[in-house]
Amino acid sequence: MQIDSVEFRKLQAGGKPSEEPPQEDADGPVFVDESGRRSKKFRRIGWVLALACAGYAVTLVVALIGGNSNAPSLLIPGQTEDKADTAEETPGPSETPTAPAGTEVEVVAGVPSPSGSTAAVRREPTVSVGEPADDRSSSPAGDSATGTATPAAGGGDGATTAPEATESTDPGGTGDNGGTAGGEQTADPTDPVPTETSTEEPPGEPAAQGGQLAGEGAR
């Protein structure tokens, strides 16, 4: 059989020599790559493409979920003076309304209002726009760590009221609350709980005090 095909080729050579183009480019099966190198290369390219596609889809989902609809704080002069008159009411509400819509704001929104409320509004003009205060409330879900840290540091007033309240509630269910926030604390509940719960409790506890609005907001 091999001989015959050679004969064929001789024949063509005799017949129309110039017109037989180099159609024997592929001696042996077309496309087949015995070494497997091409397959490996394309597999690699394939993985890159696949990852790019998957990455695209994931990026899109991540960008779409968990948005934040709050506005950064803006202080309009002339307004603040008005607000100063009703200082006791304004600060609380200015924060609390954020709570009912986004329930995740509960913890953070409640805390700053009783402790830093009046101070915060007064302070803001000096700190240009007062971004720090609002940044906390603007990313409530993710920043719970910073949220819980700040009141402990800044809210000296709040800390004094809180421990008293928490001691009474301690034996009951608050131990669990403390546990969810920080796992270590649950081991020895008595000591750390007051400091811990001071960040957790205000929404519920200060109801007795001036923080009524904050408490309502949290519910």
Partner: peptide, 9 residues
């Protein structure tokens, strides 16, 4: 015959 018959390429 001119094109070399069938090929198994």
């Amino acid at each position: 015959e001119r094109v070399g018959g069938m090929s198994d390429d």
